[in-house]
């Protein structure tokens, strides 16, 4: 199954960027922090190179999307490629809670502390 992101400016280019694939698994959360494991290499796909530059410091998936001006779905696919090639690592958010449960209180206490100190 293929998908053309028809309303994102230059659909053909985007289609090329993601190699025509449309499936991005749920591996990358919006706030998963991505870190580069290597420098961009000459001839590398420009979106890959740009991502590696951005992620020299930890960078959330959603920030990468905003900087590259690409939809989240497309960025998830790009990141999947880079991960498969061992060029990035991912720091995931705490495990997704089930519908009715909450993150543990220790974590929330740390968040509160951080907010109060702003």
């Amino acid at each position: 199954m293929t998908r053309k992101p028809v309303d994102t400016g230059s659909p053909d280019r985007l289609y090329t960027v993601t190699g025509g694939r449309s499936r991005a698994d749920g591996f990358f959360d919006l706030v998963t922090l991505v870190v580069s494991e290597c420098r961009p290499t000459p001839g590398m796909q420009s979106e890959h190179a740009r991502t590696l530059e951005l992620c020299e410091h930890p960078t959330a998936v959603v920030e990468i999307a905003a900087e590259l001006k690409l939809p989240i779905t497309v960025v998830r696919i790009l990141l999947g490629d880079l991960l498969d090639m061992g060029r990035i690592t991912a720091r995931h958010p705490p495990p997704t809670r089930s519908a009715a449960s909450l993150p543990d209180s220790d974590l929330l206490k740390e968040v509160l502390h951080g907010l109060r100190n702003l």
Binding site: T2, R3, K4, V31, L33, A60, V111, H113, G114, L115
Partner: peptide, 28 residues
């Protein structure tokens, strides 16, 4: 067939707060 699918774009904005050296809170 691709032609029979519709694509909708939803835009949103976000900011962030570094809570400490390890934790960062994103607000959407």
């Amino acid at each position: 067939d691709v032609a029979t699918k519709t694509t909708t774009t939803v835009a949103f904005d976000f900011g962030r707060i570094s809570l400490n050296e390890r934790m960062v809170l994103y607000m959407f």
